[in-house]
Design a protein around this nucleic acid. Structure first.
Lengths: 151, 151
DNA sequence: TCTTGATCTAAAGTTAGCTTTAGATCTTAA
DNA sequence: TTAAGATCTAAAGCTAACTTTAGATCAAGA
């Protein structure tokens, strides 16, 4: 286990472009690992910067912090994540990215074919929000584009 | 202006798969138009169903309700939206969809090239959250993937 | 007409994801 | 050694997007 350079909370905050309070919050939420100095201050392995970056990206993708915690469990807490660790996480994440791309392309063509040209068939027009962990932020299933236009 | 069939709030709720309270909320937020019966109950043009659908989709894309209100201002309140109305909205919306697709593809290749293989250059590795109205939900700019991995 | 179910309002409650505040303690460079 | 700045904790505050509650009224069929 290579001894990793440890940095303070302000360093992490600055490097990731966030408020110190956010880093503290993530640490309290067990999203990032930290150890304490004798005085009680938090110090972090530098690799936490990438971890925070990942969190921000995943949030942007629509993941809730609870889900992200799950995703991150693929990374080790007590040593610097290595190439294989990140690759493993990346693999899982990529599947979701692909899904997202598929979804959004479907949305695009649906809008083109449904809203754009005023389709008349309920069957053709109906899209379902399929309880996607990512997409449905705790909303439950809701039907999309479910009506026959009254043109 | 063709007299449009009017429906109750429960009908809208059922057709869109949502709680009545949500429809009422949207109506109070001026996201969907409604008129009142003599008794004070809300009634809606059927076209509100599509409007609600649009709101759900846009939310899924990451838009805040405030932004969606703006987008929806392209649609008329006092008559059934026609093909041209929806097409206009669809056009604006499609631009954002394209952006989203571009973004997510960038993310995908960045993850592949950056996390996946452990790149060593700060320049190559750095992604910025470019204050995108959609992506940044009031977060301000935050740097993503901004560190040199400590492999 | 009566009763049942739908709808109403206003206000309070909820969850996620943070920030702010206050007052105390750490750390560090001079 | 000391002053300044960084960090600490716990608790409260905040915004968005809803839901829940309570008590009243509306609408419609038997």
């Amino acid at each position: 286990m290579a001894p990793e350079p440890l940095v303070g909370i302000g360093f992490i905050a600055k490097r990731t472009g966030n408020a110190v309070s956010l880093i503290r919050y993530y640490a309290n939420q067990n999203l990032i690992p930290s150890i304490r100095t004798d005085g009680g201050n938090r110090v972090f392995p530098r690799s936490v910067i990438r971890r925070v970056s990942f969190i921000l990206i995943a949030q942007n993708m629509g993941y809730a912090l609870d889900d992200i915690r799950q995703l991150l469990s693929a990374l080790p807490d007590n040593r610097t994540p290595n190439k294989a660790d990140w690759a493993r996480l990346s693999k899982v994440f990529n599947i979701h990215i692909e899904q997202k791309i598929t979804e959004i392309n479907l949305l695009k063509s649906s809008l083109a074919g449904c809203i754009g040209c005023g389709c008349l068939s309920l069957q053709r027009c109906r899209l379902y929000n399929k309880e996607d962990k990512i997409a449905s932020k705790g909303n439950g299933a809701r039907y999309l584009l479910g009506d026959i236009p009254t043109l």
